[in-house]
Amino acid sequence: MIKNIFYKEWLKIRWAYLARGLLFAGAIIYVFASVGHSYKFYEAASYWYNIIFRGVKFYTTLRYLPLLAGLVVAAVQFVPEIQRKRIKLTFHLPVDEYNVLLVMAGIGFVSLLAMFGVYSLVFLLVGYTYFPAEIVHSAFLTMVPWYLLGLTTYSLASYVILEPLWKRRIFYILFAVGFGKLFLYGWFYNIYDRVLIGMLILTILLSVSVIYSGHRFKKGVFK
């Protein structure tokens, strides 16, 4: 049964997944092409100076991509489920409803995580050929909150979508947007280094949020 759910979820997200793969690949090519361009047009030393002492982020293009990825995966996975309340069918399968939901959310979460992992690896490997390790590592740690935002966005977007009532949904959206903004504070590099562990724990805790809405959906709430 779980295997079938895998297949069903895969059918839903495959095109979105491919599209985002292309988008990310394009973004990374763009980032390093502009780095190469900067090397050609400016003195390398002053380019480094801007990165090290003025906090210029050559990778800033990648900032909102994980957020977008989270939103898209949540949408393609859960919007079809609430149309004509299809998810109710799932709840009538002879498996535990919460496990089904957890597997669905898990597939989305892990697919995003895998994607972000691959991108980080590519970024690091290409980065080393353009910059000394210090700059590449700083860039990577500065991007970790953006990836965590992508995962959090996915979790929060899916629970917002699955919530049956608009009255509640508005509050959920307000809290979610406010929370998401906290991941994009400030402009200097590495400023999140001291709270990354806490953010990671919260991201994991929030990954099961969809259960809350699923529970409400199943019970058929009226307020």
């Binding site: 919460y98 809290f175 919260l202 805790l205 929030l206 099961v208 259960i211």
Partner: peptide, 8 residues
């Protein structure tokens, strides 16, 4: 359900 609710 309780974990997700308290986290939220």
């Amino acid at each position: 359900v309780r974990i997700s609710r308290y986290t939220l």
